[in-house]
Amino acid sequence: MGIFTQEHLTVREKYGTTNQAEMVFSYMDTTSLSDRMIGFIESINYFFLATSSKEGRTNVNFKGTKSKRLIKVLDKNRLIFPDFNGNGILHSVGDILSNPNVGLLVIDFSKDIRIKINGKAKIIDDKEIISSYLDYFDSFNFSRLIEVEIDYVIPNCSANLSVVRDSILDKGNKV
Rank of each mutant, 00 (worst) to 15 (best):
L145G: 02
K127R: 14
H8W: 11
G94P: 02
V163F: 06
S132F: 00
F81H: 03
G64E: 06
L74E: 13
T65I: 14
T18C: 01
V73M: 09
V11P: 00
I123R: 08
F4V: 04
A21S: 11
I115R: 01
D75M: 12
G94Q: 12
S43I: 01
K14A: 14
D126A: 09
V163P: 00
R144P: 01
S43C: 03
S34L: 05
E147R: 03
Y46D: 08
T65R: 09
L134P: 00
S52I: 01
N61C: 12
I150C: 03
S162W: 13
R57E: 15
G119N: 08
D83Y: 10
G172V: 10
L134V: 06
G16V: 05
D112V: 03
I89M: 14
F47L: 09
D95Y: 02
D166K: 10
K63Q: 13
H91Q: 13
K76M: 11
N141Y: 12
V175I: 15
T51C: 09
A159G: 10
F25S: 01
S139M: 13
F25A: 07
I38N: 02
F142A: 11
D112K: 09
I130Q: 10
K14W: 10
N45M: 10
M37Y: 03
S92D: 05
D170P: 00
D151L: 15
G16D: 04
I41S: 00
P155R: 05
D138G: 15
N141Q: 07
G172P: 06
Y15W: 12
T58E: 11
Y27Q: 14
G103V: 02
G39P: 02
I96D: 03
R12T: 03
S67A: 15
Q20E: 15
E22A: 06
N59R: 13
D29M: 09
V24Y: 02
K116F: 00
K122F: 07
D35H: 08
N85Q: 13
N101D: 07
I3E: 14
A159K: 14
T31K: 14
V11T: 11
S53F: 00
S92I: 02
R114K: 12
